[in-house]
Nucleic acid binder design. Structure first.
Length: 554
RNA sequence: GUCCCGGUAGGGUAGUGGAUAUCCUAGAAGCCUGCGGAGCUUUUGACCCGGGUUCAAGUCCCGGCCGGGGCGCCA
């Protein structure tokens, strides 16, 4: 509804100014939307921008499609205000379940996220990938796109070969109750130490890689067993994080089905291709200095080659291909896109996120230097249990545990989703365990408060009659929700939704503080209850899209 | 060395070239026998440095400085 108004204004401005692009900005406290076109026109027309703005305002106000839009020239700025009727109508939409869900679209989207190597548990760096990816996925679904979420399983890299070598050579004392991914990490760390001590064994690892690429049955089984064990652990962690993948795509499939050979064969005919034992591309024309090696001199393929096959497949089966990858993949991602372009295949849009490090330095699975996601979940849940027990001692234990789990997940997911991906961060236990600030639980709390009011109110007849600034500010924010979802999928920025939800909770808390609902009367009471219902529903939809439980009580 | 990201109050963080730079935290002062105080109000405090483009720069360009990452026949 708002986007209709947005487009109406945009179109009218283009017509009135003759400009190709006019851009609308958030009006802040001045207006619902605003435009600064007058500044630019001032130069071209050699006229005072305030005068231009005044003339434009007159022209626009006369338009028939501006029935619900008031135009005002304030100095050089053009301010647009939506009519009360529009806001009140939009607010009624907001009280209905599913608010913010866009109509079904045709464009098929594939989103790859997490895709961590199965050589140890997911750690606090990986889950930045998971949470960004899963939040984006939820936004795409909310925005009406048919979406498939994939996990790309690197099941044949050198790191997995090292794990397999470790399983074959190191005495393994399995620990009771140990998750598969943690078990694999122990072996991987030990194997790396052993290889450092005896570098001559590296040849054995190379041989494993050659055998698995040839499809040697016994070796393939060993790889699969190790990878599966690790993956089983991942599944548990991912589920606890509330993240779901529709499909696990195994890298080795692209060897077995011949796709890797096919793509390498196509590449071998390209002028940029060089074969001198190994096979590599000279991408200097596309701005890359480094050789892009795709096949080793022993004939085995490199990760990049299989990735080309994988992305060719994705590009042909989906309209929009999105990858969430760590900053360490920036170069290889750019090379991948450049190569796919040369091949005439569709390339992915890549969301790169910067690294999460520990106070003592960067994480390393090989060195065993990491904080696992399981550890984090465990600790945060423990803290949340304490907190819930203090606040709600009267609740039965099972209920307290369920609330604590939701609160813990809210804290973790929100803390990651709120930070824009290009910011590198340092993991801090004190921060992770602190819910006493505007955070996931803070937003859940606003929702619980709203739910509580509605429960006490019982049945009421909805109506909207906004009376004061607190109500208006809250209403204006509520009706922006569908456009926020739109922005997230357009710009691939999940933190916009995180910020939106927090602002909504802020505005609700201010409204809650100043405007009594249950103690008001008549039409004021009904209108405020309707506003509470719209808030509660919008918070619930926003939280759900962030992968956070909208608790009715906590 | 080179390429890519960051650099915004003491700490963290948001900011499409446009109106008084967002929010948390920390510090100070308040609110409450009101619908759930995981709350609210007031206040202290910031755009790394130097040039440039522009009517207008936190935002764009160039050069520094600091932090993170890449530059492997690893993934």
């Amino acid at each position: 509804m708002l986007s209709t108004l947005y487009h109406t204004i945009e179109y009218a401005l283009k017509e009135a100014t003759g400009q190709e692009e006019v851009f609308l900005v958030e009006g802040g406290e001045h207006a619902d939307l605003a435009s600064t076109v007058a500044f630019g026109l001032a130069k071209v027309r050699r006229k005072n921008p305030a005068m231009i703005s005044r003339e434009l305002a007159e022209t626009l106000a006369a338009r028939e499609d501006f029935g619900d839009i008031a135009v005002e020239a304030l100095g050089p700025y053009l301010n647009f205000h939506f009519s009360r009727e529009v806001i009140e109508r939009a607010l009624q939409d907001a009280t209905r379940p599913g608010y913010g869900t866009h109509p079904r679209r045709e464009e098929r989207v594939v989103l790859e996220h997490t895709s961590a190597n199965p050589n140890g548990p997911l750690h606090v760096g990986h889950i930045r990938n998971t949470i960004l990816g899963d939040t984006l996925a939820r936004c795409f679904r909310k925005a009406g796109y048919p979406l498939e979420v994939q996990y790309y399983v690197n099941d044949m890299g050198r790191q997995i070969a090292i794990v397999v070598w470790g399983f074959c050579t190191i005495a393994d004392t399995s620990l009771a109750g140990e998750k598969g991914d943690h078990h694999v990490a122990r072996i991987y760390i030990a194997a790396n130490r052993a290889l450092e001590a005896r570098p001559e064994c590296v040849a054995e690892v190379d041989r494993l890689m050659q055998q698995v690429e040839r499809g040697d049955q016994a070796t393939v089984l060993l790889f699969r067993k190790a990878v599966t064990e690790c993956l089983e652990g991942f599944r548990v962690t991912l589920q606890r994080l509330g993240a779901r993948h529709d499909r696990f795509v195994w890298e080795s499939d692209f060897i077995r089905n011949g796709d890797t050979d096919r793509v390498l064969s196509r590449i071998s005919h390209m002028p940029e291709c060089h074969v001198d034992g190994r096979l590599w591309l000279d991408l200097s024309e596309s701005g890359f200095e480094k050789e892009y090696v795709l096949r080793r001199s022993d004939g085995t393929s490199v990760y990049a080659a299989r990735d080309l096959a994988y992305h060719t497949w994705k590009g042909r089966n989906f309209d929009r291909v999105i990858d969430v990858l760590g900053a360490d993949h920036k170069l290889i991602g750019a090379q991948l896109i450049a190569t796919l372009r040369l091949l005439g295949e569709k390339g992915p849009e890549i969301v790169h996120f910067e690294f999460v490090s520990l106070p003592e330095g960067s994480m390393s699975t090989r060195a065993g230097k990491f904080v696992s996601a399981d550890e984090l979940l465990e600790e945060v849940e423990r803290r949340a249990r304490e907190e819930v027990t203090v606040r709600r001692p009267e609740l039965p234990e099972t209920e307290r545990l369920a609330i604590a789990r939701s609160v813990a997940l809210a804290a973790i997911r929100y803390d990651i989703a709120r930070i824009s991906p290009e910011k590198s961060t340092v993991f801090d236990w004190n921060e992770a365990l602190d819910f006493e600030r505007q955070s996931g639980p803070y937003i859940q709390y606003a929702h619980a408060r709203a739910s509580s009011i509605l429960e006490k109110a019982g049945e009421f007849e909805e109506c909207v009659a906004l009376e004061n600034e607190h109500e208006m500010a809250l209403a204006r924010h509520i009706i922006r929700f569908p456009m926020v979802i739109e922005s997230v999928v357009r710009e691939l920025k999940p933190h916009l939704l995180a910020a939106y939800a927090r602002e909504l909770a802020d505005l609700f808390n201010a409204f809650y503080h100043f405007e009594p609902v249950l103690k008001s009367e008549g039409i004021t009471r009904r209108s405020r209850l309707t506003l509470v219902k719209a808030t509660q529903n919008t918070l619930a939809e926003a939280l759900q899209t962030l992968g956070i439980d909208a608790l009715r009580t906590m």
